[in-house]
Protein backbone atom coordinates (compact mmCIF):
# COMPACT_ATOMS: atom_id res chain seq x y z
CA UNK A 1 0.00 0.00 0.00
CA UNK A 2 1.35 3.39 -0.85
CA UNK A 3 1.16 6.02 1.82
CA UNK A 4 -0.01 9.53 1.10
CA UNK A 5 -0.51 12.08 3.86
CA UNK A 6 -0.61 9.23 6.38
CA UNK A 7 -3.42 7.30 4.66
CA UNK A 8 -2.27 4.02 3.20
CA UNK A 9 -4.05 3.47 -0.11
CA UNK A 10 -4.20 0.59 -2.55
CA UNK A 11 -5.75 0.89 -5.99
CA UNK A 12 -7.33 -2.00 -7.83
CA UNK A 13 -8.60 -0.54 -11.13
CA UNK A 14 -9.47 -3.96 -12.60
CA UNK A 15 -12.11 -4.39 -9.92
CA UNK A 16 -12.98 -0.68 -9.66
CA UNK A 17 -11.79 -0.86 -6.09
CA UNK A 18 -9.85 1.38 -3.75
CA UNK A 19 -8.67 0.25 -0.35
CA UNK A 20 -7.41 2.58 2.33
CA UNK A 21 -6.78 2.55 6.06
CA UNK A 22 -8.25 4.84 8.67
CA UNK A 23 -6.88 5.62 12.10
CA UNK A 24 -9.69 5.11 14.62
CA UNK A 25 -8.14 7.64 16.98
CA UNK A 26 -8.96 10.30 14.40
CA UNK A 27 -11.91 8.67 12.66
CA UNK A 28 -13.95 6.74 15.27
CA UNK A 29 -15.75 3.58 14.21
CA UNK A 30 -19.17 5.18 14.62
CA UNK A 31 -18.27 7.98 12.21
CA UNK A 32 -16.93 5.46 9.69
CA UNK A 33 -20.20 3.50 9.91
CA UNK A 34 -22.25 6.64 9.29
CA UNK A 35 -20.10 7.54 6.31
CA UNK A 36 -20.46 4.03 4.89
CA UNK A 37 -24.22 4.42 5.18
CA UNK A 38 -24.07 7.50 2.95
CA UNK A 39 -22.04 5.66 0.29
CA UNK A 40 -23.70 2.25 0.45
CA UNK A 41 -26.05 3.04 -2.46
CA UNK A 42 -23.23 3.88 -4.85
CA UNK A 43 -20.45 1.59 -3.62
CA UNK A 44 -19.84 -1.90 -2.35
CA UNK A 45 -18.12 -1.47 0.99
CA UNK A 46 -16.13 -3.90 3.06
CA UNK A 47 -14.47 -3.12 6.39
CA UNK A 48 -11.75 -4.93 8.26
CA UNK A 49 -9.55 -4.22 11.24
CA UNK A 50 -6.37 -6.30 11.12
CA UNK A 51 -4.87 -4.40 14.02
CA UNK A 52 -6.17 -2.31 16.88
CA UNK A 53 -6.69 1.37 16.11
CA UNK A 54 -6.96 0.82 12.37
CA UNK A 55 -9.89 0.15 10.05
CA UNK A 56 -9.33 -0.85 6.43
CA UNK A 57 -12.10 0.30 4.11
CA UNK A 58 -12.56 -1.23 0.70
CA UNK A 59 -14.76 0.72 -1.69
CA UNK A 60 -15.82 -0.83 -4.95
CA UNK A 61 -17.87 1.10 -7.45
CA UNK A 62 -21.20 -0.34 -8.55
CA UNK A 63 -20.75 1.15 -12.01
CA UNK A 64 -20.08 -1.35 -14.78
CA UNK A 65 -17.46 0.67 -16.69
CA UNK A 66 -13.85 0.70 -15.55
CA UNK A 67 -12.83 3.68 -13.44
CA UNK A 68 -9.47 5.37 -13.74
CA UNK A 69 -7.07 5.78 -10.86
CA UNK A 70 -8.04 9.46 -10.60
CA UNK A 71 -11.71 8.60 -10.38
CA UNK A 72 -11.04 6.06 -7.65
CA UNK A 73 -8.96 8.60 -5.73
CA UNK A 74 -11.81 11.07 -6.12
CA UNK A 75 -14.18 8.56 -4.53
CA UNK A 76 -11.79 8.15 -1.61
CA UNK A 77 -11.60 11.94 -1.30
CA UNK A 78 -15.37 12.21 -1.18
CA UNK A 79 -15.50 9.51 1.46
CA UNK A 80 -12.95 11.30 3.62
CA UNK A 81 -14.76 14.61 3.20
CA UNK A 82 -18.03 13.06 4.28
CA UNK A 83 -16.24 11.47 7.21
CA UNK A 84 -15.03 14.90 8.33
CA UNK A 85 -18.52 16.29 7.86
CA UNK A 86 -19.95 13.62 10.12
CA UNK A 87 -17.24 14.11 12.71
CA UNK A 88 -17.98 17.82 12.81
CA UNK A 89 -21.72 17.22 13.07
CA UNK A 90 -21.16 14.74 15.91
CA UNK A 91 -18.97 17.29 17.66
CA UNK A 92 -21.61 20.01 17.38
CA UNK A 93 -24.34 17.67 18.61
CA UNK A 94 -22.24 16.61 21.57
CA UNK A 95 -21.42 20.23 22.44
CA UNK A 96 -25.03 21.34 22.26
CA UNK A 97 -26.60 18.20 23.70
CA UNK A 98 -27.54 19.74 27.07
CA UNK A 99 -29.05 22.84 25.46
CA UNK A 100 -31.06 20.70 23.04
CA UNK A 101 -32.31 18.56 25.93
CA UNK A 102 -33.46 21.66 27.82
CA UNK A 103 -35.26 23.00 24.75
CA UNK A 104 -36.96 19.70 24.00
CA UNK A 105 -38.03 19.13 27.62
CA UNK A 106 -39.34 22.71 27.75
CA UNK A 107 -41.45 22.17 24.66
CA UNK A 108 -42.74 18.83 25.92
CA UNK A 109 -43.65 20.32 29.35
CA UNK A 110 -45.38 23.27 27.71
CA UNK A 111 -47.49 21.00 25.51
CA UNK A 112 -48.36 18.80 28.53
CA UNK A 113 -49.49 21.88 30.48
CA UNK A 114 -51.61 22.94 27.52
CA UNK A 115 -53.19 19.48 27.38
CA UNK A 116 -54.01 19.62 31.10
CA UNK A 117 -55.57 23.09 30.68
CA UNK A 118 -57.72 21.81 27.83
CA UNK A 119 -58.78 18.84 29.93
CA UNK A 120 -59.79 21.18 32.83
CA UNK A 121 -61.76 23.42 30.44
CA UNK A 122 -63.44 20.35 28.99
CA UNK A 123 -64.38 19.19 32.48
CA UNK A 124 -65.87 22.67 33.31
CA UNK A 125 -67.95 22.54 30.12
CA UNK A 126 -69.14 19.05 30.97
CA UNK A 127 -70.11 20.17 34.50
CA UNK A 128 -72.07 23.10 33.08
CA UNK A 129 -73.92 20.77 30.73
CA UNK A 130 -74.80 18.45 33.60
CA UNK A 131 -76.03 21.39 35.68
CA UNK A 132 -78.17 22.69 32.84
CA UNK A 133 -79.65 19.26 32.27
CA UNK A 134 -80.50 18.95 35.97
CA UNK A 135 -82.12 22.37 35.84
CA UNK A 136 -84.19 21.37 32.81
CA UNK A 137 -85.20 18.11 34.51
CA UNK A 138 -86.39 19.93 37.67
CA UNK A 139 -88.30 22.51 35.63
CA UNK A 140 -89.98 19.70 33.71
CA UNK A 141 -90.98 18.08 37.01
CA UNK A 142 -92.49 21.36 38.20
CA UNK A 143 -94.33 21.74 34.93
CA UNK A 144 -95.71 18.23 35.17
CA UNK A 145 -96.93 18.93 38.69
CA UNK A 146 -98.63 22.11 37.50
CA UNK A 147 -100.23 20.35 34.52
CA UNK A 148 -101.58 17.65 36.82
CA UNK A 149 -103.52 20.28 38.75
CA UNK A 150 -106.79 21.61 37.43
CA UNK A 151 -106.74 25.24 36.21
CA UNK A 152 -109.58 25.94 38.59
CA UNK A 153 -107.27 25.18 41.47
CA UNK A 154 -105.19 28.20 40.31
CA UNK A 155 -101.73 26.70 40.99
CA UNK A 156 -99.82 29.81 39.92
CA UNK A 157 -101.97 32.20 42.01
CA UNK A 158 -103.07 34.31 39.03
CA UNK A 159 -106.59 34.90 40.38
CA UNK A 160 -105.21 36.78 43.30
CA UNK A 161 -103.26 39.12 41.00
CA UNK A 162 -106.17 39.67 38.63
CA UNK A 163 -108.72 40.31 41.43
CA UNK A 164 -106.40 42.81 43.02
Amino acid sequence: MRSEKGIKTKLNPTDNEIVFSLNTKIYPQEAIYKTCYVFIDKMYIYLDSPKKGEIIASLKSKLSGRLSAEELEKIKGEFLNELLNILLRNGVIKKNQKIMEYIVSGVVNASLEEKNENKTMQRDDEDDTIDIEKEIASLKEELDKIEEKNFEDDPLGIRGVVNN
Binding site: Y33, C36, I40, Y44, Y46
Partner: peptide
Protein backbone atom coordinates in the same frame (compact mmCIF):
# COMPACT_ATOMS: atom_id res chain seq x y z
CA UNK B 1 -21.89 -10.93 -10.62
CA UNK B 2 -22.20 -8.73 -7.60
CA UNK B 3 -23.66 -11.46 -5.39
CA UNK B 4 -20.82 -11.45 -2.89
CA UNK B 5 -20.68 -7.64 -2.92
CA UNK B 6 -24.40 -7.42 -2.24
CA UNK B 7 -23.97 -9.82 0.65
CA UNK B 8 -21.17 -7.69 2.09
CA UNK B 9 -23.18 -4.50 1.67
CA UNK B 10 -26.30 -5.91 3.26
CA UNK B 11 -24.30 -7.19 6.24
CA UNK B 12 -22.78 -3.77 6.71
CA UNK B 13 -26.14 -2.07 6.30
CA UNK B 14 -27.73 -4.23 9.00
CA UNK B 15 -24.78 -3.59 11.24
CA UNK B 16 -25.03 0.17 10.88
Amino acid sequence: NGFVEEFLNYSLFLNI
